[in-house]
Design a binder for these strands. Structure first.
Lengths: 343, 343
DNA sequence: CAAACGCTTTCCAACGTTGTAATCTTCAGC
DNA sequence: GCTGAAGATTACAACGTTGGAAAGCGTTTG
């Protein structure tokens, strides 16, 4: 079988515990002894058994990331950022896909895998504010996203309202006034859709424009095909608009494609801005203006918070909340003279 | 602390081992006893400690997927397919990103995490055929991709040459004859680039056309920006071509964007086909014809093979090789009358 | 009626590691 | 040369689980 500490101990002519001490950098080890042990480890190619260590120490150095769907570019990029942040701190990440369904999200959270990891980063779409009570589990956890606020756990999110307001203002400044709120969920108050719609309304209000309900376009699931589908209906309905605030990049790209097929020029006829700054927005035709939600900051902060929870006193500090900073990224899809009609 | 088998045993008034037997579906358990144990498990909310189980049984039910980069759409979709296939069989997946660097790929393979998983799916970009000897590790492994053939382990890959030949023929059939081989690595014989170039050559030969070296365009790294960059140079050079066989979708999309910026019409002026069938190809403008490499089949087969290795006799069967089937997906970017010049 | 059998449950040890506490060494200080 | 303290190492137990073998028990068989 594999090499164990026992073999190393024998080879270095010390006790098993001394080997353990060397590996774990315990104080009070003679330099000469440490040398000898390290040499034996090297020679035998010893590698610790992480199951045994996990059993004994209660730590596995594995954290779990629960997300709806890796095929979704936003979550793929989030996963990348989280894994990079975790690797920097010596942790490894198990990804579990929930498909965004509430039942599956709860199932995963209460499944036996949770006992195998030190902590969980929990990014949900199916759960809502009313489920806040259900996510209080013994495993340390940091919640991501905008489905539940002021829950029992730490929470990292982006400035949805402010960012959406800024996106809307970005278009208003460029002289567009008939703006679609593209991707709304009308019955939602929080959640990305609810918050972003609120930001849109605030921007209009600040600019002295009325909110017109028919300009809020429902797109239930935020995939590219849904955006395309929704835009097709908008065009058929003959609705008059000159700008689109899309609530994520995927539906923006889907919608853009449909508008172009219909002969609309972007940004001349319609200006459009998305949300998330996924890689693809830099390469679409035209390139898509968007909101950088501060993904790296979100990932770094979430991992750091989680590790603090894991290391720190169990229930000492109360749940913390953190909002990452955002940036408006201006690209071709909104590249028109600012406020050209006022010239 | 957490509930253990000991607590369950006490509650059900049986021995610890009986609880274990119930959980592991051992034969010869009285129905009544099983009931009682299951009830106690339910009531106490017992969940097994996977570290302990892993230590005792040598199994963790975790497999590792080593890939270059999750931000790359191809690998994100591969990861999704692998996780789905694994979940179906009760396994969970740890993803490790190598960045595609040879050193890091080896480092991960020989790192201590390998002792925590039952097996590894290993998708490499940095290693090459000459490293075949280095990847023989005690942990069961299935190699993915086209960097190493006939190595010491099972191998799952796609039909690169045949698929590339089919892609090239797809353009030839549509009357295009001056075809770029876009994404070549001139010094490579195997590897995706080498094999796909070979398929391109075979198609030309079969059609009675000469291979012209200046039409093979090197693109070192297969990211969108590299494709864009390479196409910019091609256009500047004034090279004459009417079709592009791109060796993956990302560089195809990057190149398409650049050609359109330069006023070329697709597919009228230039027809283009990619490789991989990533989601985005269905939504680009125009939609991109491509090769479906059989990703799901690859994932399913790789996971199945790996589990066989894990369960089966260690070195019983020799290394197996499997090539998934491919499909040519015809979309707008090649939507021109077949062989129009012969009409 | 004893022996044998099959089903069911239990006992014991072990997986490889680390925490605690005990032991052994070294060396300063007198 | 002795004492005491600090430094270095070790013995032992324990983490929660499962494999193997043994034991209990009810039934059948010669």
């Amino acid at each position: 079988m594999a090499i164990t500490m026992r073999d190393v101990a024998q080879a270095a002519d010390v006790s098993i515990k001394t080997v353990s001490n060397v590996i774990n950098d315990h104080p009070n080890i003679k330099a000469e002894t440490r040398e000898r042990v390290l040499l034996a480890i090297e020679k035998l190619g010893y590698q610790p058994n992480l199951s045994a260590r996990g059993l004994r120490s209660g730590r596995t150095d594995v954290i779990s990331l629960i997300i709806p769907d890796l095929k979704n570019a936003y979550f793929a990029e989030l996963a990348d950022a989280v894994m990079t942040a975790a690797a920097k701190r010596g942790k490894v990440v198990i990804i579990e896909q929930s498909g965004g369904s509430r039942a599956r999200e709860l199932e995963i959270l209460h499944g036996p895998r949770m006992r195998m990891v030190d902590g969980v980063l929990y990014s949900v779409l199916g759960l809502g504010q009313e489920d806040a009570g259900l996510i209080d589990i013994p495993t340390p956890m940091v919640l991501l996203g905008e489905r539940i606020f002021h829950g029992p756990t730490d929470h990292v999110t982006m400035q949805n309202i402010e960012a959406s307001q800024a996106a809307t203002e970005h278009l208003l400044q460029r002289g567009r006034t008939r703006l679609l709120a593209f991707g709304a969920h009308r019955n939602e108050v929080i959640g990305s859709a609810g918050l972003r719609l609120e930001g849109y309304r605030r921007a209009l209000q600040k600019a002295g424009l009325d909110y017109r309900d028919e300009l809020a376009i429902d797109v239930q699931s935020w995939h590219r095909s849904d955006g395309a589908q929704a835009m097709r209906q908008v065009l058929e309905s003959g609705l008059d608009f000159d700008g689109v605030v899309a609530f994520n990049d995927s539906i923006a790209l889907g919608a853009m494609r449909v508008m172009q097929d219909a002969g609309l020029k972007i940004p001349e006829d319609v200006a459009i801005i998305g949300f998330d700054d996924i890689d693809e927005t830099r390469y679409s035709l035209p390139t898509l203006s968007t909101i950088d939600p501060g993904r790296r900051e979100i990932a770094e902060t979430a991992v750091a918070m989680l590790l603090e929870r894991i290391d720190g006193a169990p229930e000492a500090t109360p749940a913390r909340e953190f909002e990452a900073g955002f940036k408006v990224i201006s690209r071709e899809s909104t590249a028109i003279r600012p406020a050209e009609d006022s010239a």
